[in-house]
């Protein structure tokens, strides 16, 4: 089974609209989301896709809880169903 990181990378390529990033480009797990210039709509939309894929409950306020991809991976590894 694919790791949390691999599943997230796939979601990023499919669903996260980051202007300037090439699909499949290297993803720095520790780079702050804020440094990607992701819009708030894109961030909340991505969070919804993550919740669906990993069967976890997340609300809009959770967007601010994860400063980078690694923190999201850590949360999902502890909470995903």
């Amino acid at each position: 089974m694919a790791s949390t990181e691999e599943r997230l990378r796939e979601l990023v390529d499919k669903h996260l609209n980051v202007e300037g990033r090439q699909s499949g480009a290297t993803l720095d797990l520790n780079a702050p989301f804020a440094d990607s210039g992701i819009s708030s709509v894109a961030a909340v939309s991505f969070m919804m896709e993550v919740a669906k894929e990993f069967d976890v409950k997340m609300n809009v306020g959770d967007c601010a809880q994860f400063p980078n991809m690694q923190s999201l991976i850590d949360f999902l590894d502890s909470n995903a169903g």
């Binding site: 980051v18 202007e19 990033r21 990607s36 210039g37």
Partner: peptide, 12 residues
């Protein structure tokens, strides 16, 4: 400089 891509750098 920390922005990863050109578009957000320009907007900032």
């Amino acid at each position: 400089k920390r922005f990863l891509y050109a578009p957000p750098r320009r907007r900032y």
